[in-house]
């Protein structure tokens, strides 16, 4: 199997996996970074959202061979100690119910806010529309994104 050099959360890793392996499974099964979640595998739910050079990207659709030297950030790398404003806001608002979707929600939110630091509520709702929360903690997700925006500005 081919080997790939990956830059994940500022560290280099070499993995030996089939070229069509989605980065989601490389992270989870090979690099032990299980914060990135599997929800659908077809780009519909957003549970697997990571940043690829800062852009929110679906980890289940991105094959390891497509990454090249772009750098990957996962929830573990957003900040290790939970100090990123988005993580802070998530704690403050107590967003999670089961919590399973929340890593993906936070990765979508943090990438969105880095591009639009003072969004309107409508923009927040549009930006978060691609992430499913089966527990429907949507009201709090919306509020937490707004709270994180306040912290960032």
């Amino acid at each position: 199997m081919p080997t790939y050099n990956l830059k994940v959360n500022g560290e280099s890793h070499t993995v030996d996996v089939a070229e069509d392996t989605p980065i989601l499974w490389v992270l989870r099964d090979h690099l032990n970074l299980v914060g990135t979640k599997f929800g659908c595998g077809i780009g519909q739910c957003g549970a697997c959202t990571i940043h690829l050079d800062g852009d929110a990207t679906r980890g289940c659709l991105l094959q390891v061979s497509q990454v090249g030297d772009q750098s990957i950030t996962t929830i573990e790398g957003l900040s290790e100690d939970g100090s990123h404003p988005v993580q802070q806001a998530w704690k403050e608002i107590d967003v999670p119910q089961c919590g399973y979707c929340q890593a993906g929600q936070m990765m979508t939110a943090s990438s969105f806010l880095s591009k639009n630091p003072s969004p309107t509520n409508e923009e927040i709702r549009q930006a978060m529309h691609g992430n499913i929360c089966r527990c429907a903690s949507y009201n709090r997700i919306e509020k937490a994104v707004a709270t994180a925006a306040d912290k960032l500005s």
Binding site: V34, K37, I75, K91, P96, Q102
Partner: peptide, 21 residues
């Protein structure tokens, strides 16, 4: 009272069956 697992959830620590190895 905030969810007792909140710190683990927001930093992506292993918690769920899917994460067990």
């Amino acid at each position: 009272i905030t969810n007792v697992d909140i710190d683990k959830i927001v930093t992506g620590k292993p918690l769920y069956g899917m994460d067990f190895k």
